[in-house]
Amino acid sequence: MSTIAVFIERRGGAIKRAALEAITAARFHADRVIALELGSDVDGLLAAYGVHEVVSIEHALLERYSSQAVAEAIAQWAKSRQVATLFFGATAMGKELAPRVAVHLEAAYVPDCVELAASDGHLDAVRPLYAGKVRATVRPLTERAVYSLRPNMFTARPAEQPSTPEFSTFTPSLSQEQCRVVVTEIVRNEGKLDVLEADIVVSGGRGMKGPEHFVLIEELAAVLGGAVGASRAVVDAGWRPHSEQVGQTGKTVSPNLYLACGISGAVQHLAGMSSSKVIAAINKDKDAPIFKVADYGIVGDVFEVIPKLIERIRALKQSSAS
């Protein structure tokens, strides 16, 4: 019987969607899914998602988050239970933690998976390489394997039948030396939706002509309930903060809708958004490379098109709300 353990990442107490996506994917590939929690939050969601067992990892030294100590703890647990397959969301936390766990388990690490497929007793994964220009099927060569799953590539779906998970606690053996790095503070960009977590991203590029015109992008993002993104050119020019940058030197996003405004679509930008579910673009140059990867496009001036778009989307939202 195959078992997959899924690391449950929480933010402010709530389970992150990336973890629910990983649980859903795990249900397809295992008979038994174990949720690994830090601390003992009890959450009905895990039952709704059909998890068979919930393990709380608890230790006084884990009061402050330490990737070093948590990786050690997870590996100790996996060894004690002989669990050979572990899933993480490929989030900032997961991408730091998963490779460390893999080393402790002498396991293959398969990063940033966008597809999983069982084949001849292996669990292969597909992942993008070279900024998404190529995809590789990766096969673990070791008995154990640790995967991180790119957010929003696997659907999070509750189980048909909720489960009644077994609960247990695991206390790892940790020393101070294994907690030499700790998180002391988390600073949130208050009131701003992050491009990494938004279902809709509206990005502006050089075609916006100046930082003052980003009010249009902000308003369009607001009416869509999305986050504001930016191209490298406008971040380098100081119009927008680096935290909004989408692309190879910024963030890699895969929202349900990526709307590029005044962005030509350099290969470095495409690297950061080409796995979006739906891509739409507004650009006055009909030959802009962004249109080659777009589902929907408008060839036109952003300054004329965006205000009309805002007006129509607002009307649409009002009519569907009433």
Binding site: D124, V134, A136, T137, V138
Partner: peptide, 14 residues
């Protein structure tokens, strides 16, 4: 520990 067993160019289904 891991091998890339196959490569493909992603098909643009836009």
């Amino acid at each position: 520990r891991a091998a890339m067993v196959r490569y493909q160019v992603p098909q643009l289904k836009r």
